[in-house]
Design a binder for these strands. Structure first.
Lengths: 118, 118
DNA sequence: CAGGATCCTTTACGATACTG
DNA sequence: CAGTATCGTAAAGGATCCTG
């Protein structure tokens, strides 16, 4: 990069930064990506199954994150009319647009772990 | 997906979930990805420039996040021997492995914004 | 300029118990 | 089973002032 070339975007990256901010405001935190990752990998999943898959999450936290993801159209919540009622969570079409992002996060996690082990 | 197919990974996704966890443990939060994004977009950048680019960040927070990123080999911190000393932060080679991830985050932020405006 | 010190508010997250 | 209620701790984040 040439010196002062950064002047080219004196206010030039804000939309990109805003986009990053948008994403992270919604998906930052310890569990959200793991939840979505699980739903993508395993398909529709019940509350307790999720709780088991996401080792260590408290039911309150799981419930809260699921609500936020549902509100933001990333997952659906379906009450099944079974004997003891069950509830299934599944990824939406819009949620599927996170496929590539989740992949990158996963890949990078593996990359980074190899790097720091060195 | 076939019924019960999820049995195929009863404990089959943990490494993927662990990878997601690794990534997010390090990079979750409001500012980290924005900081890295800025350094990737703008090249080496001084503390105050970063502060200006990251609209609204408190110096204390910026300082803390920069330290964490440096400790994790994602950025470098270089003190320049100028009249009032200046400090430049830059992305490392390892930090560059975040390129694609940052791109996806940015892209998805744009996608999502369009979606919710509907 | 770079960033530490101080103080404060707000989320995040967790453990456990409990209910329809 | 699927959560909610309650309680508590820790971390995140912010505002402001200060210093070499």
């Amino acid at each position: 990069m040439k010196k002062d070339q950064k002047i080219i975007h004196p206010k030039g990256c804000p939309h990109q930064l805003r986009a990053i901010k948008d994403t992270m405001e919604l998906l930052s935190g310890k569990w959200k990506f793991q939840i979505i990752g699980t739903l993508i990998l395993s398909g529709a999943t019940r509350f307790m199954e999720l709780k088991r898959a996401l080792d260590g999450i408290a039911p309150k936290k799981l419930s809260k994150d699921l609500q936020e993801l549902e509100i933001n159209q990333l997952i659906t919540r379906t009450v099944k009319d079974t004997k003891p009622i069950t509830v299934e969570y599944a990824i939406t079409e819009h949620g599927r647009t996170l496929d590539k992002l989740i992949n990158e996060i996963t890949e990078w996690g593996l990359t980074h772990r190899k790097e720091i082990i060195k």
